[in-house]
Each structure stands twice: as C-alpha cells, then as structure tokens.
Design a protein around this nucleic acid. Structure first.
Length: 415
DNA sequence: TGTCCACTGGAACGTACGGCTT
DNA sequence: AAGCCGTACGTTCCAGTGGACA
C-alpha cells in the first residue's frame, strides 16, 4: 500500500468520524474561559489591588503563590485583560507586560522583552544588561504610563540569576518621573521567599494571594464547564469525568493535568472511532501523557547526557540496579571511547547526573559508605524499555545500548 | 578517636560563538 | 574590522563530608 493511500484513509476516517470534539481548543491550558470556577475570591482581591491604576495611581506589588494548575496564571491574565479593557474605555494610560521567567531565562531577555512591549528597540544580543535597563527606563518614563509587569515562574529567576533584576525593578519607581510600575510575581515554589533579599521581599510582597489546590469536586466543576463546549452532547461519560478529576486531585489538585487527561482521552476515543469517552480512555490517556513526557525529555538530551544515561542503563541491564558515580563514569568513558568522543571530566558528569535527576530520568542520592568514601547512588527512575526504544532510533546510540562494557565484568567480580 | 576514602559541589576561570556598536 | 557583551558549556582546583574501620 502506498503512503498516500494510508494517509488518505487516516484523513477519510477522521473526516467521517462521529466527531467527539466540538471545540478541542477549549481544553488547552492557554485558553482563558469567561468563567473561572472556585476562584471568585482571588479574582475579586486581585481586582481590588489593581483598580487604583484606573484612576492614575500606581497599584501595589503582588506576590501570588500556588502549585501548578491552581489557576494563578489564568486568574491574573483574566483580571489584567479586563483591567486593560476598562482602562481603554476610560482612556487611562495602562500597559501590561506578561513574562514567563522560565522561558526568558536571562536578565537580558527579560529587559528586552519589557522593551519590546514599550516598542523600545534593542538588539537581540550584544548590549550590556545595564544599557538595556537604561533604555527600558528612559523609554518607560517618556511614555508616561502605569506599567504592570507580570513575572510568571519568578522563582526560576531567583534560582538561576539571584535577585539583582528584581532589586532593580522594585527600585525603578524612585528614578521615574512620569511613569510608574507595579510588579505581579507568580511562584509555584512556596519557599521561594527564603531566597530573596529582605529589601526586595518587603517591596515585592506588598500584597500576597495564595491559591490553594483544587479538590476533586472543584476539579469536576472546572472540567464540566470546559467539557460542555469541548465535546459533543452525550459523548463524555460521567464516570470518565469523575475519574479524571480524581486522578488530578490525587496529584496536588492540578487543573492543567485534568484538562490534559480529558483532551488526550478524547483524542484516543476519536482515533479509535469510539462514540464516547469512557473511563478506560482516561486511564490510557494517563499512561500516554507520562510516556510522551519521558520520550520527549530523552530525545532532547545533549549527547553526553545521553551517554551518561546509557551507562546507567547498561548497569541496570547487568542487574546492578544501584550504581555509584565512579562506576558510571568508568562505563561512560568506555562508551565515549567506542564513539570516538573525548570524555568530559568526572566533575562535569556529576553535574549531568544531577541534571538528569532533576528532570526525573535518574534518581541520585548522596550516601556515605564509610571508609569507602562519599558518593552518589544512582539508578534509573524510568523503565529501561523506554530508554532502549528511544536510543535505538539514534544512530550514535543504537550500537551502545547493545554494548557490553568491559568494566561491568570488573564490577561483577568485585561484588 | 582519628584516619581516610571517594567523592560532592562551590567558585573561578577558559573557550567558542553570535551579534551589536563604534 | 576591532572591541565588547551575554550565553553556553566546559575544566581546574580544592575544601568539605559522613561514616566504616583500625
């Protein structure tokens, strides 16, 4: 059968399908609905905090906390978008800039993105950060506006770059004559305040709003609200919806996860030509999401991280389930030799192991083995089959996952 | 109780690179 | 074209560490 025929059939099947979805976009996390159930209190409070800008005064800086999928970003975008409309009606000079600090990982990018909102031109790279900050300040002051800066995932900024940028931003009003700024910081990490300079903290947290996790019943309401426009009538079984809410509630009440589950389950049902989304679809969606997350992480790893992971894989395959840094480094060096690469230093490999631990592909724990030294015990935190399946498609690694390192025999004889 | 192992992890520094300003 | 800057990725150095063992 030619490829075109196969694809034709796929498209035909899709077009003829009974149509599970009415509008699947409603289930994406960046979709902001007209109603945000169970967040009335937070919406009202944030509205009260921001309202002064409509009368030309600066509003307080706000820190917003809550775990992922508790509606922080949605509420803030919702309130600020309404505020923007109202300001427009009244002719109040208000401008809002939303920045995700994890995506804009450097000070330079953050300042240049602030400049972009104000139509101040700065090069993509090449200027000193101080220079970009000065251009931002001058540009802002000349526009005579109230500027609200939303810094989402603000904890990412502190962990990587310290709080110099926040210090500068919180002090900026002292040097502005005609414009004023307010900062809305959003954090998933409740402990992030501990890392802040006290001066920055006191200025940044003039107001605080906490978003507690949703419980299963609340998640159910949210899903119900979204499912109505997302699915055709009678397609979604009640049990499936409840299961979805229960699974997400078990994982710290994450609405984002609940929506993902529902969307993927719908897509599974659609592809199968099912007439309804049932509990089994939800369970399979859960597995699919986890599998995709890992597969994507594996695919995007740099080569040396893949070699480190491959070393742990080979140790696991040889029934050495909990290896130490030294073992892994020996095998990693062997694999480098096999690939004609110069190995990185053990120090660097140790950092790579930590990075793999953070992503959740490895589990690394520092242990002391008495007079046999202090090291890290490292094991895989994902199934070996996933690694094999991913690496086998990579020309450089295909041979290595089948390789039998000489060092393995040495370890086995030692134990 | 002191020694010693096998590292850990912080800090400083080096190199390559892309892109801007002068 | 030279100089400067930020970023990414790496090396080198070294003080610090927890606990088994003599």
């Amino acid at each position: 059968m030619s490829k075109t025929t196969v694809l034709d059939k796929v498209f035909e099947h899709f077009l003829k399908g009974n149509g599970i979805f009415q509008d699947r976009e409603v289930l994406r996390h960046d979709y902001i609905p007209d109603m945000l159930p169970h967040r009335r209190e937070q919406i009202r409070y944030l509205g009260e905090i921001c309202a002064p800008v409509l009368k030309g005064s600066r509003c307080s800086n706000v820190l917003v906390y809550g775990k992922t999928g508790t509606g922080k970003t949605a509420v803030i975008k919702y309130v600020l978008s309404r505020l923007g409309h109202k300001a427009c009606e009244l002719g109040a000079p208000v401008k809002v800039c939303y920045i995700n600090c994890r995506l804009m990982s450097t000070e330079y990018r953050i300042f240049s993105s602030l400049c972009a909102t104000l139509d101040v031109k700065v090069p993509f790279t090449g200027l000193a950060v101080g220079e970009v900050f000065d251009r931002f300040k001058t540009g802002l002051d000349s526009r005579k506006i109230l500027f609200i800066i939303v810094l989402d995932e603000i904890d990412a900024l502190i962990k990587t770059r310290g709080d110099v940028l926040l210090y500068e931003l919180t002090r900026i009003n002292e040097t502005l004559h005609y414009s004023k700024t307010a900062i809305v910081g959003i954090s998933n990490d409740l402990r992030f305040k501990e890392f802040l300079d006290p001066r920055v903290l006191s200025s940044l947290s003039e107001e605080e709003i906490v978003f507690r996790p949703y419980d299963a019943a609340e998640l159910r309401d949210i899903l119900l609200d979204r499912a109505r426009p997302a699915f055709h009538d009678g397609v979604l079984f009640d049990g499936a919806l409840s299961l979805c809410a229960a699974l997400a509630a078990a994982e710290h009440g994450d609405a984002r996860r609940a929506l993902d589950l529902l969307r993927v389950a719908g897509e599974l049902a659609e592809r199968e030509g099912s007439e309804a989304v049932v509990e089994d679809h939800i369970r399979r969606a859960e597995k699919r999401i986890e599998h995709d997350r890992i597969a994507e992480a594996l695919e995007n790893l740099p080569l040396h991280s893949k070699l480190v992971l491959c070393s742990v894989y080979l140790l696991g395959k040889a029934k050495i389930s909990c290896a130490v840094t030294g073992d892994i480094y020996e095998i990693y060096c062997e694999l480098c030799g096999q690939s004609g690469l110069t190995p990185l230093t053990q120090r660097r490999v140790s950092s790579l192991v930590n990075e793999l631990d953070v992503i959740g592909l490895l589990n690394a724990r520092v242990v002391s083995m008495g007079r046999y030294g202090r090291t890290k015990k490292i094991r895989l935190s994902i199934a070996r089959s996933i690694i094999r399946a991913s690496f086998i498609t990579d020309d450089r690694l295909e041979r290595l996952v089948k390789y039998a390192p000489k060092y393995l025999a040495e370890i086995s004889s030692r134990r």
